[in-house]
Amino acid sequence: IGLCRTEHMFFEGERIKAIREMIVSDNVADREKALAKIMPYQQGDFEGIYEAMQGHPVVIRFLDPPLHEFLPTKEEDIVEISKEMNIPLEKLHNVIDSLHEFNPMMGHRGCRLAVSYPEIAAMQTTAVINAAINVQKKHPDWTLVPEIMIPLVGEVKELKYVKDVVVKTADAIIAAAGIDMKYEVGTMIEIPRAALTADEIAKEAQFFSFGTNDLTQMTFGFSRDDAGKFLSYYYDKKIYESDPFAHLDQNGVGKLVAMAVQLGHQTRPDIHMGICGEHGGDPTSVEFCHKVGLDYVSCSPFRVPIARLAAAQAAIKNPR
């Protein structure tokens, strides 16, 4: 699994209640109390994933979307939650208003959440490592190496701050369990600045995953959700030959990827790197990624057969 999106585990039943409790909390103690309710759910999910994968690699991405996505927008839902959580309606409205962002894609999300609220990263680390330890004990013939991905990093100091939280938490749990378990902390390269400073980021990251969906959005400066309204005019006028979200833009975004690969290897020769996103299922994009030195492809499940074939063809066509 090249990308396990942990936020998808938060949306049901008691889980969404606990995450909302965390969001409306205005102090660390209350946030930790709410996160303690979520942690067993996350740990259980990770245990299930590790069991299903039978020792094969799993990259777990920490919380990525902005917090407003977990809160209601309709007034009747807001009123209902206010009663359910015993929170004054005015306070809930104030929280929702404070989380409003004009451009959420470039807002308070990804590693910025963990920098603001490190207790989130501590909880997710606890869930990942506990799950891995429990499954490893059940299956001593497997070798589990948890891979933790910190999303949306643009500055190495961001990554170091969050990584320090992860390492401190993970090392304490592993030591208490008396088990010898290795784990890796890496990042998603999805901001142009991260690609440009990949030599610095590789000092802290043990792996790179190129999130080319967001990297394309931020490099072109338009939203994947809105670009369809005007891109057809660009195709008609031959300004763009194809959809850059379907086929990786090798002249622009591709140069950033190639640069990041080169810079990353300069700092950490053994760093492993992959592509994660819709481009991972596009044969021409996969071939390009193979040429510039990526190690693996992660894409939507239904694209996996195409990606495997494309990766095999690229390896035969361009042997390293």
Rank of each mutant, 00 (worst) to 15 (best):
N251A: 14
G252W: 00
G252I: 00
V253D: 02
V253E: 03
V253Y: 04
G254A: 12
K255E: 12
K255G: 00
K255L: 08
K255I: 04
L256M: 09
L256T: 01
V257Y: 09
A258G: 05
A258D: 08
M259L: 15
M259Y: 04
M259G: 10
M259I: 03
A260K: 10
Q262T: 11
Q262S: 15
Q262D: 08
L263Q: 14
G264H: 12
G264Q: 14
G264K: 11
G264S: 13
G264L: 12
H265F: 07
H265P: 01
H265D: 01
Q266G: 00
Q266F: 07
T267R: 15
R268L: 11
R268M: 03
R268K: 15
P269W: 05
P269Y: 04
D270C: 12
I271M: 09
I271C: 12
H272I: 14
H272Q: 09
M273A: 09
M273L: 14
M273I: 07
G274I: 10
G274P: 04
I275C: 02
I275S: 00
I275E: 00
C276H: 02
C276Q: 02
C276D: 01
G277V: 13
G277R: 15
E278T: 07
E278G: 08
H279A: 06
H279P: 00
H279N: 04
G280I: 15
G281H: 08
G281A: 11
G281Y: 04
G281V: 14
G281S: 10
D282P: 00
D282R: 05
D282L: 09
P283R: 04
T284G: 01
T284F: 07
S285R: 13
S285A: 10
S285H: 05
S285K: 11
S285D: 02
S285E: 06
S285C: 07
V286Q: 01
E287A: 15
E287F: 03
E287G: 03
F288G: 00
F288L: 05
F288V: 05
F288T: 05
C289F: 12
C289D: 01
H290A: 09
K291V: 00
K291Y: 01
K291E: 12
K291A: 11
V292T: 01
G293E: 09
G293C: 14
L294T: 00
D295G: 06
Y296P: 03
Y296R: 10
Y296D: 08
Y296A: 12
Y296C: 12
Y296W: 10
V297L: 15
V297I: 15
V297S: 09
S298D: 05
S298E: 04
C299D: 02
S300N: 07
S300V: 08
P301G: 07
F302E: 08
F302I: 08
F302Q: 12
F302P: 03
R303Y: 02
R303T: 02
R303A: 06
R303H: 02
V304H: 04
V304Q: 07
P305R: 15
I306R: 04
I306W: 02
I306Y: 03
A307P: 05
R308V: 14
R308G: 07
R308P: 06
L309Y: 01
L309H: 02
L309E: 09
A310Y: 06
A310Q: 13
A310K: 14
A311G: 04
A311H: 03
